[in-house]
């Protein structure tokens, strides 16, 4: 039971991170109907930027933790958002209206490019970071005591807060309305005066900012990153988006939690070697048997 509870906490933490990345996939897919294959790389860049920001703050001597965390969070979100914006501008916008596969291939190219770009600039070695937020509370004493670490609490809390903020942005602001309009019909949105290009750019910016948060969380949580973390995390987050129903924001979060839990429980109770197989299998099963996911709307084939 205590083992189960511990895994539940770990799973939720991991799931929150996947959920944050998945939102980027789901928003982009909703608005331009393409898989932003390079989104995992954006997350990886977010992780690197937060690592660098921590180190810079350390050198500058800003050590009061709440302030440091806030600065790192903002720096990661802002700088990563620039990557998201540039990605769309260079690799996707010129291909709008081209065959779908062309955009997907461009995205794969961008993913390869960014991975090697970071590897060349920052080195291929694994980057460690000392624990920034140590400690936690012990929920249950026993042979295996159940710990709920502060960092886990922070990840889950931050995810909930960000989810709330972004849901509000999409539900209430003009930007969010424009995004929902573009999701329905881009031509019509343009006709009623919505700047479609800017709306799409903003979608990438928002997705990148959330991925940056996920990157920061991972840096804090595991304390070690490398240039290759984007690939697997990207695929798992995409799986989460599909499981939740691609295009649906709460779906992405739900899917993220599910994938996180499945992965953690699979490793805990079956085999850790095949934990990635579990994620891939879920992806395949969902796409084959229920491509609309848990919360997606069914698609009627237009003839």
């Amino acid at each position: 039971m205590d083992y189960f509870l511990q895994q539940l906490i770990n799973g939720l933490t991991l799931g929150a991170i996947y959920g944050l990345i998945a939102i980027g996939y789901t928003m982009v897919y909703g608005i331009i109907g393409m898989i932003n294959f390079a989104h995992g790389e954006i997350y990886m860049i977010g992780a690197f930027i937060s690592l660098i920001a921590f180190l810079v703050l350390g050198i500058l001597g800003i050590t009061w933790l709440p302030l440091a965390l806030l600065i790192v969070l903002l720096a990661a979100m802002v700088f990563t958002a620039f990557y998201g914006w540039t990605l769309e501008r260079l690799a996707y916008r010129p291909l709008r209206g081209s065959p779908r596969l062309a955009a997907l291939i461009s995205a794969i190219g961008m993913s390869i490019f960014l991975q090697n770009y970071v590897q060349l600039l920052q080195g291929a070695r694994v980057k460690p970071l000392q624990p920034v937020i140590p400690g936690g509370i012990v929920l249950m004493e026993g042979t295996i005591s159940v710990r709920f670490n502060y960092i886990q609490m922070m990840i889950i809390a931050a995810t909930i807060v960000l989810m709330a903020i972004f849901s509000l942005i999409i539900a209430k602001t003009a930007m969010g309305r424009a995004q929902r309009a573009c999701q329905q019909d881009q031509t019509m949105s343009a006709l009623v005066g919505i700047n479609v290009d800017r709306t799409i750019s903003m979608t990438f910016v928002m997705g990148a900012a959330l991925a940056a948060v996920a990157g920061m969380m991972v840096t804090l949580y595991y304390g070690v990153i490398d240039f290759f973390i984007g690939f697997l995390a990207g695929i798992k987050a995409f799986t989460a988006a599909v499981v939740g129903g691609i295009g649906s924001l709460p779906g992405a979060m739900l899917g993220g939690l599910l994938i996180g839990l499945i992965e953690v429980f699979w490793s805990a109770y079956f085999t850790i070697e095949y934990k990635d197989v579990a994620a891939f299998s879920i992806l395949i099963l969902v796409l084959v048997f229920r491509p609309t996911g848990l919360m997606g709307k069914p698609e009627i084939e237009k003839v």
Partner: peptide, 17 residues
């Protein structure tokens, strides 16, 4: 690999087919 990824993007943008 850097050039590789970059080429993929550029060629798709320049000639999507």
């Amino acid at each position: 690999m850097l050039a590789f990824g970059g080429l993929m993007v550029m060629i798709m943008v320049w000639r999507p087919r």
